[in-house]
Computed example of a mutant assay.
Amino acid sequence: MVRNPLTDDERHRGLVLGRLLQQARGARSAAAVAFEAGISLDTLRKIERGAIATPAFFTVAALARVLGLNLSDLAESVAEDKKRAAGRVA
């Protein structure tokens, strides 16, 4: 199966999501968070740096649970960043 290339918006959302998750992790080790969420450390690192721009929903949900984040608030934060970016461009 061939995946369609990611759009610039999708790549940007991935970077924003990764940054938000990394900020929420704070001083906790990436290894501890990944273990508690049931994902590999490599996957968490890729999400945090935006290399996985569209992580699976259940992966994001597991990370949100471990980090004490509300999924709706997380989605809203990503959307707000897009609005701010659009305001700078327009």
Rank of each mutant, 00 (worst) to 15 (best):
M1A: 15
M1C: 12
V2Y: 08
R3L: 11
R3M: 09
N4E: 13
N4G: 03
N4H: 07
N4W: 04
N4F: 04
T7L: 10
D8E: 15
E10A: 10
R11I: 07
H12F: 14
H12Q: 15
R13I: 05
G14V: 01
L17Q: 02
G18P: 08
G18A: 02
G18L: 04
G18Y: 09
R19C: 04
R19N: 07
L20H: 03
L20S: 04
L20Y: 01
Q22C: 07
Q23A: 15
A24Y: 06
A24V: 08
R25G: 07
R25S: 06
A27L: 11
R28T: 11
R28K: 14
S29N: 10
A30K: 09
A30T: 14
A30I: 11
A30D: 01
A31F: 01
A31M: 02
A32C: 10
V33S: 10
A34C: 01
F35T: 15
F35H: 15
E36W: 04
A37T: 13
A37Y: 05
G38R: 02
G38V: 07
G38C: 02
G38T: 06
I39G: 09
L41W: 01
L41H: 11
D42G: 11
T43Y: 09
L44F: 08
R45G: 12
K46W: 00
I47H: 00
E48F: 00
E48H: 00
R49V: 01
G50S: 08
G50R: 05
I52R: 05
A53E: 11
P55T: 08
P55K: 02
P55E: 02
A56V: 09
A56D: 14
A56I: 06
F58I: 03
T59H: 00
A61G: 00
A61H: 07
L63Y: 10
L63T: 06
R65T: 14
V66S: 07
V66W: 04
G68Y: 12
G68A: 13
N70P: 03
D73Y: 07
D73Q: 15
L74W: 03
L74V: 04
L74D: 03
A75E: 09
E76K: 11
S77M: 12
E80G: 05
D81G: 01
K82Q: 12
K82P: 00
K82L: 14
K83E: 15
K83N: 09
K83F: 04
R84S: 13
A85T: 10
A85K: 12
A85M: 12
A85L: 15
A85C: 07
A86V: 11
A86F: 08
G87A: 15
R88W: 13
R88Q: 14
R88Y: 13
V89Q: 11
A90L: 12
